[in-house]
Simulated scan of single mutants.
Amino acid sequence: GNLCKKHNIHFHCDAVQAVGKITVNLKELPIDSLSMSAHKIYGPKGVGCLYLREGVNIPPLILGGSQEFGMRSGTENVAGIVGFGIAAKIVQEDLQLNFTKTEYLRDLFLTNLHAEIEDCLINGDIHANVPSTINIQFSGIRGESLASMLNELGICVSIASACSSTSSKLSHVLKAIGKTDDEIRSSIRISIGALTTEDEINQLVRHLKHSVVRLRSFSPKYQIPV
Protein backbone atom coordinates (compact mmCIF):
# COMPACT_ATOMS: atom_id res chain seq x y z
CA GLY A 1 0.00 0.00 0.00
CA ASN A 2 2.76 2.45 0.86
CA LEU A 3 4.61 1.55 -2.34
CA CYS A 4 1.48 2.21 -4.40
CA LYS A 5 0.93 5.52 -2.66
CA LYS A 6 4.52 6.54 -3.35
CA HIS A 7 4.01 5.97 -7.10
CA ASN A 8 0.44 7.32 -7.21
CA ILE A 9 -1.09 3.89 -7.97
CA HIS A 10 -4.63 3.04 -6.85
CA PHE A 11 -4.51 0.17 -4.32
CA HIS A 12 -7.64 -1.98 -4.10
CA CYS A 13 -8.00 -4.78 -1.53
CA ASP A 14 -10.40 -7.72 -1.88
CA ALA A 15 -11.06 -8.25 1.83
CA VAL A 16 -14.02 -10.66 1.80
CA GLN A 17 -12.00 -13.31 3.67
CA ALA A 18 -10.60 -10.83 6.20
CA VAL A 19 -13.49 -8.63 7.30
CA GLY A 20 -15.22 -10.21 10.28
CA LYS A 21 -12.32 -12.58 10.93
CA ILE A 22 -9.46 -10.23 11.79
CA THR A 23 -9.22 -6.55 12.70
CA VAL A 24 -9.44 -4.34 9.61
CA ASN A 25 -8.83 -0.69 10.51
CA LEU A 26 -9.06 1.51 7.42
CA LYS A 27 -7.79 4.51 9.35
CA GLU A 28 -4.44 2.72 9.65
CA LEU A 29 -4.22 0.66 6.43
CA PRO A 30 -2.89 2.44 3.30
CA ILE A 31 -5.79 1.24 1.11
CA ASP A 32 -7.62 3.34 -1.49
CA SER A 33 -10.58 1.01 -1.93
CA LEU A 34 -11.77 -2.20 -0.32
CA SER A 35 -14.54 -4.68 -1.09
CA MET A 36 -16.41 -7.00 1.25
CA SER A 37 -19.42 -9.33 1.01
CA ALA A 38 -22.32 -9.80 3.43
CA HIS A 39 -22.61 -13.58 3.17
CA LYS A 40 -19.02 -13.98 4.41
CA ILE A 41 -20.06 -12.52 7.78
CA TYR A 42 -23.38 -14.40 8.04
CA GLY A 43 -25.40 -11.65 6.41
CA PRO A 44 -27.76 -11.98 3.40
CA LYS A 45 -26.43 -13.20 0.06
CA GLY A 46 -26.39 -10.88 -2.92
CA VAL A 47 -25.14 -7.69 -1.28
CA GLY A 48 -21.65 -6.30 -0.93
CA CYS A 49 -19.88 -3.11 0.03
CA LEU A 50 -17.24 -1.00 -1.65
CA TYR A 51 -15.21 1.33 0.56
CA LEU A 52 -13.60 4.34 -1.14
CA ARG A 53 -11.16 6.53 0.73
CA GLU A 54 -12.16 10.20 0.74
CA GLY A 55 -10.79 11.95 -2.33
CA VAL A 56 -10.56 8.74 -4.39
CA ASN A 57 -12.62 8.88 -7.58
CA ILE A 58 -13.49 5.97 -9.89
CA PRO A 59 -15.85 5.84 -12.89
CA PRO A 60 -19.43 4.59 -12.26
CA LEU A 61 -20.21 0.93 -12.85
CA ILE A 62 -23.61 1.71 -14.42
CA LEU A 63 -24.49 5.09 -15.92
CA GLY A 64 -27.87 6.81 -15.89
CA GLY A 65 -28.90 7.51 -12.33
CA SER A 66 -27.68 9.08 -9.12
CA GLN A 67 -28.11 6.14 -6.76
CA GLU A 68 -25.26 5.14 -4.45
CA PHE A 69 -23.59 8.55 -4.71
CA GLY A 70 -23.66 8.34 -8.49
CA MET A 71 -21.52 5.22 -8.51
CA ARG A 72 -24.17 2.70 -9.57
CA SER A 73 -27.58 3.33 -11.11
CA GLY A 74 -30.60 1.27 -10.08
CA THR A 75 -32.74 0.67 -7.03
CA GLU A 76 -30.74 -0.31 -3.97
CA ASN A 77 -31.35 -3.63 -2.24
CA VAL A 78 -32.55 -1.97 0.95
CA ALA A 79 -33.31 -5.18 2.85
CA GLY A 80 -29.88 -6.56 1.91
CA ILE A 81 -28.13 -3.36 2.97
CA VAL A 82 -29.87 -3.31 6.35
CA GLY A 83 -29.09 -7.01 6.87
CA PHE A 84 -25.46 -6.39 5.95
CA GLY A 85 -25.24 -3.54 8.44
CA ILE A 86 -26.67 -5.62 11.28
CA ALA A 87 -24.40 -8.58 10.43
CA ALA A 88 -21.38 -6.25 10.42
CA LYS A 89 -22.34 -4.89 13.85
CA ILE A 90 -22.75 -8.39 15.33
CA VAL A 91 -19.57 -9.82 13.81
CA GLN A 92 -17.55 -6.83 15.05
CA GLU A 93 -18.87 -7.28 18.59
CA ASP A 94 -18.01 -11.02 18.50
CA LEU A 95 -14.73 -10.64 16.60
CA GLN A 96 -12.30 -11.66 19.35
CA LEU A 97 -14.58 -14.40 20.70
CA ASN A 98 -15.02 -15.97 17.25
CA PHE A 99 -11.30 -15.67 16.47
CA THR A 100 -10.35 -17.45 19.70
CA LYS A 101 -12.93 -20.19 19.12
CA THR A 102 -11.91 -20.70 15.49
CA GLU A 103 -8.24 -20.83 16.43
CA TYR A 104 -8.99 -23.49 19.06
CA LEU A 105 -11.00 -25.60 16.59
CA ARG A 106 -8.26 -25.21 13.95
CA ASP A 107 -5.61 -26.44 16.40
CA LEU A 108 -7.85 -29.31 17.54
CA PHE A 109 -8.41 -30.33 13.93
CA LEU A 110 -4.72 -30.27 13.03
CA THR A 111 -3.67 -32.17 16.17
CA ASN A 112 -6.21 -34.94 15.50
CA LEU A 113 -5.49 -34.93 11.78
CA HIS A 114 -1.77 -35.53 12.18
CA ALA A 115 -2.44 -38.19 14.81
CA GLU A 116 -4.82 -40.11 12.55
CA ILE A 117 -3.55 -39.59 8.97
CA GLU A 118 0.01 -39.90 7.72
CA ASP A 119 1.53 -37.98 4.81
CA CYS A 120 -0.63 -34.87 5.04
CA LEU A 121 0.91 -31.42 4.85
CA ILE A 122 -0.39 -27.91 5.41
CA ASN A 123 0.01 -25.58 2.42
CA GLY A 124 1.28 -22.25 3.68
CA ASP A 125 2.38 -20.91 7.05
CA ILE A 126 0.01 -21.93 9.83
CA HIS A 127 1.25 -19.03 11.97
CA ALA A 128 0.63 -16.37 9.31
CA ASN A 129 -2.92 -16.99 8.17
CA VAL A 130 -6.49 -16.65 9.38
CA PRO A 131 -7.47 -19.75 11.41
CA SER A 132 -10.77 -20.10 9.56
CA THR A 133 -9.22 -21.45 6.35
CA ILE A 134 -6.81 -24.39 5.98
CA ASN A 135 -5.37 -25.80 2.76
CA ILE A 136 -4.03 -29.35 3.09
CA GLN A 137 -2.44 -31.83 0.71
CA PHE A 138 -2.92 -35.58 1.11
CA SER A 139 -0.19 -37.55 -0.65
CA GLY A 140 -1.29 -40.29 -3.05
CA ILE A 141 -4.83 -39.09 -3.80
CA ARG A 142 -6.67 -36.54 -5.95
CA GLY A 143 -8.35 -33.65 -4.18
CA GLU A 144 -11.52 -33.80 -6.29
CA SER A 145 -12.02 -37.48 -5.40
CA LEU A 146 -11.67 -36.74 -1.70
CA ALA A 147 -14.02 -33.76 -1.97
CA SER A 148 -16.60 -35.92 -3.77
CA MET A 149 -16.46 -38.64 -1.09
CA LEU A 150 -16.81 -36.11 1.72
CA ASN A 151 -19.72 -34.46 -0.10
CA GLU A 152 -21.57 -37.79 -0.07
CA LEU A 153 -21.18 -37.73 3.72
CA GLY A 154 -22.59 -34.21 3.98
CA ILE A 155 -19.22 -32.51 4.43
CA CYS A 156 -18.41 -29.61 2.11
CA VAL A 157 -14.79 -28.91 1.24
CA SER A 158 -13.26 -27.28 -1.81
CA ILE A 159 -10.40 -28.00 -4.19
CA ALA A 160 -10.05 -24.35 -5.26
CA SER A 161 -10.96 -20.86 -4.14
CA ALA A 162 -14.71 -20.29 -4.21
CA CYS A 163 -14.41 -17.68 -6.97
CA SER A 164 -12.68 -20.17 -9.29
CA SER A 165 -14.21 -23.46 -8.20
CA THR A 166 -15.40 -24.25 -11.74
CA SER A 167 -11.98 -23.64 -13.25
CA SER A 168 -9.83 -26.59 -14.28
CA LYS A 169 -6.66 -24.57 -13.86
CA LEU A 170 -4.36 -25.35 -10.96
CA SER A 171 -4.24 -22.83 -8.13
CA HIS A 172 -1.84 -20.02 -9.04
CA VAL A 173 -1.50 -19.27 -5.32
CA LEU A 174 -0.22 -22.76 -4.49
CA LYS A 175 2.04 -22.56 -7.53
CA ALA A 176 3.42 -19.25 -6.28
CA ILE A 177 4.43 -20.77 -2.93
CA GLY A 178 6.33 -23.53 -4.70
CA LYS A 179 3.90 -26.47 -4.77
CA THR A 180 4.22 -29.03 -7.58
CA ASP A 181 1.30 -29.92 -9.84
CA ASP A 182 0.83 -33.26 -8.05
CA GLU A 183 0.83 -31.55 -4.65
CA ILE A 184 -1.77 -29.04 -5.83
CA ARG A 185 -3.97 -31.78 -7.29
CA SER A 186 -3.89 -33.62 -3.95
CA SER A 187 -4.99 -30.56 -1.94
CA ILE A 188 -8.32 -29.50 -0.49
CA ARG A 189 -9.46 -26.39 1.36
CA ILE A 190 -11.34 -26.65 4.65
CA SER A 191 -13.14 -23.73 6.30
CA ILE A 192 -14.15 -23.32 9.95
CA GLY A 193 -16.89 -20.87 10.87
CA ALA A 194 -18.38 -19.25 13.94
CA LEU A 195 -21.09 -21.93 14.02
CA THR A 196 -18.71 -24.90 13.71
CA THR A 197 -18.72 -27.22 16.75
CA GLU A 198 -16.06 -29.41 18.33
CA ASP A 199 -18.16 -32.49 17.52
CA GLU A 200 -18.20 -31.51 13.84
CA ILE A 201 -14.40 -31.22 13.88
CA ASN A 202 -14.12 -34.73 15.31
CA GLN A 203 -16.56 -36.06 12.70
CA LEU A 204 -14.55 -34.40 9.95
CA VAL A 205 -11.30 -36.05 11.06
CA ARG A 206 -13.02 -39.44 11.32
CA HIS A 207 -14.53 -39.20 7.83
CA LEU A 208 -11.32 -37.78 6.39
CA LYS A 209 -9.36 -40.74 7.71
CA HIS A 210 -11.82 -43.25 6.27
CA SER A 211 -11.93 -41.51 2.87
CA VAL A 212 -8.17 -41.01 2.59
CA VAL A 213 -7.43 -44.63 3.53
CA ARG A 214 -9.98 -45.84 0.99
CA LEU A 215 -8.59 -43.67 -1.80
CA ARG A 216 -5.01 -44.59 -0.99
CA SER A 217 -5.87 -48.28 -1.31
CA PHE A 218 -5.93 -47.65 -5.07
CA SER A 219 -2.51 -45.95 -5.04
CA PRO A 220 0.56 -48.14 -5.71
CA LYS A 221 2.50 -46.10 -3.14
CA TYR A 222 0.20 -47.20 -0.31
CA GLN A 223 -0.68 -50.75 -1.37
CA ILE A 224 0.61 -53.43 1.01
CA PRO A 225 2.76 -56.07 -0.76
CA VAL A 226 1.22 -59.55 -0.71
Rank of each mutant, 00 (worst) to 15 (best):
E198L: 10
H207L: 10
R214Y: 13
G178N: 07
G143N: 04
L204W: 03
D199H: 09
E200D: 10
A162H: 05
L153E: 14
H207A: 05
Q137A: 06
G193A: 08
R142N: 11
I192H: 03
N202P: 03
C156G: 02
S161G: 15
G140K: 07
S211F: 06
I134N: 07
E183P: 02
L174Q: 12
G193F: 09
A194K: 12
R206Q: 14
E200T: 09
Q203A: 06
N151W: 08
R216N: 06
S164H: 05
A194S: 15
L146K: 04
L204M: 15
S161K: 12
A162W: 03
K179Q: 13
A194R: 15
L204F: 15
E183K: 08
I141G: 03
K169N: 13
T196K: 09
L215H: 04
D182V: 13
Q203W: 09
R214S: 14
K209P: 00
L195N: 11
K175M: 09
S167D: 07
G178A: 11
I155F: 04
D182S: 15
L195Y: 11
H210S: 13
I136R: 04
D199I: 11
C163L: 12
S164N: 12
L150F: 05
L170N: 07
I184Y: 01
N202I: 11
S158A: 15
S171G: 05
L150D: 02
S167T: 11
N202H: 14
G178F: 06
I136A: 01
L170S: 06
K179T: 02
N151E: 14
I155D: 03
E200A: 12
N151L: 13
A147T: 06
A160N: 09
S145A: 12
S187R: 04
H210P: 02
I141C: 00
A176P: 00
L174D: 03
F138Y: 10
V157D: 00
A176E: 11
R189D: 01
R214W: 00
E144P: 01
S191L: 07
A162C: 09
F138I: 10
R206K: 15
M149N: 14
G178L: 09
R214F: 14
N202C: 13
K209C: 06
H207P: 00
T180Q: 04
D182N: 13
I188Y: 04
D199F: 08
I136F: 04
S187E: 02
T133L: 14
S164Q: 06
H207T: 09
T133Y: 10
D181K: 13
I190T: 06
E200L: 09
K179A: 05
R189E: 00
H210W: 08
S168V: 05
S148H: 12
S187Y: 04
Q203L: 15
V205W: 05
G140A: 09
T166H: 10
T196V: 12
N202G: 02
S145E: 15
L204T: 10
G193Y: 08
I134R: 07
S187I: 10
S145P: 00
R214G: 09
